[in-house]
Design a protein around this nucleic acid. Structure first.
Lengths: 205, 205
DNA sequence: AAAAATATCACCCTTTAGGGTGAGCTCCAC
DNA sequence: GTGGAGCTCACCCTAAAGGGTGATATTTTT
């Protein structure tokens, strides 16, 4: 990750410009500045940022929180809240959106920089916990899976059916079955549910 | 969690007292104030805090980071860094300790409060990833599951087969099937793999 | 070049899961 | 005491998954 793309959602153009400049000074690229919810959501899909800075009290409502929910469901990037004040009611609402941080205005370049760095670092370390690698699996079984078998195991973990896998891999459903048979034997299991549970325990522990 | 116990690690007694007072004003209990690494580690085991606030540059070295590592390995509580400045070298080191946040001095009560609230909330939401509660499921579907249906869903999530569930619940496999049919309809899914995936997304990312 | 591992596919058959319909029971609310 | 919600069960059928055997390419290793 050489250059980090930031999306800023802030209705006050003055502050927005402040932020953009501060970010530029510390080697971030501001790929977009949105002044309302609509723009924000549009820019999210268009500019694919690595992180978002959200003003909580966008407009008069709590549009920032809704944007956060959109990010959580549709995009998987970290985000930080910007706010000029903080009280318990708002806090209770934003807590549930799992922000990677919270920046209270006024803030300076250093605040911004540290918050963004921590947020990105934490986010990827937390979310790599469910990245499934072939070595994770093979390091815990006597008979290692082949690459193809692992690909199919991943599909099973994602809930695919045999016919779906056959289509996606451009191979016969019989071949899929053969691979699955081998996987089951290597992992010493007898159903996809067991396979999923096995992977879960591998990732969890 | 009615009262939240906080451990403060800060070598400057002046600032430490500041923090203690600020925290008391917002209903936290400061269970200990450590002025060096040794005291900090001692207080960790003795006072079992819910969260720790760590001064990064304790003494002259980066003892705060070592305390953080101790927390990560031996205690599972969230912590926040306190620091009077921020630069890239330090930041790179602290990032790896996965702090739940970073507070740059000077800060006021509100900053402290929001940071602690967010930290605790995030921490438990991140780490609760393996507790499945019926409300977690029902809060995300239009048609709520009944208790029995939820029990069966949990079994499915654990990889049980229908006949296993029938045995464990002392009911007919036909009844199991009926429940599963209802579950599928309520969750808008069509197989146990989909069910497991659905639960996974509810719990995790 | 020979051997081994991997990937591909085709049968067969059994078991499990999924889906539709109907129905009896209990418990609680109205 | 009627009605609804929830739990129970049965029977039917189809679809999907699981398991066994065997076989042919392709690729990698030796």
């Amino acid at each position: 990750m050489s250059v980090i793309n930031v999306l800023v959602v802030e209705d006050d153009p003055f502050i927005a410009e402040d932020i953009r400049e501060a970010l530029s000074n510390v080697d971030y690229t501001v790929v977009g500045v949105a002044h309302n919810k609509k723009d924000a959501i549009h820019l999210l899909s268009k500019s694919s940022p690595d992180i978002a800075l959200l003003d909580i009290n966008l407009g008069d409502n709590l549009d920032g929180i809704q944007i956060a929910e959109t990010i959580n469901t549709d995009y998987q990037i970290p985000f930080l809240y910007l706010t000029s004040y903080s009280n318990k009611e708002i806090l209770d609402k934003v807590k549930h959106t799992l922000p990677m941080g919270y920046i209270v205005k006024p803030f300076d370049e250093a605040d911004l920089f540290t918050a963004v760095e921590i947020a990105i670092s934490n986010f990827y370390q937390i979310n790599k916990a469910d990245a499934l690698h072939i070595n994770t699996v093979n390091s815990s079984v006597p008979n290692p899976l082949t690459q193809k078998e692992f690909e199919i195991l991943k599909d099973i973990y994602q809930g695919s059916t045999n016919s779906q896998m056959a289509e996606n891999h451009y191979i016969s459903i019989n071949t899929i079955k053969t691979h699955i048979k081998n996987i089951y034997e290597k992992l010493d299991i007898h159903s996809r549910s067991e396979a999923i549970v096995k992977i879960r325990t591998l990732l969890g522990s």
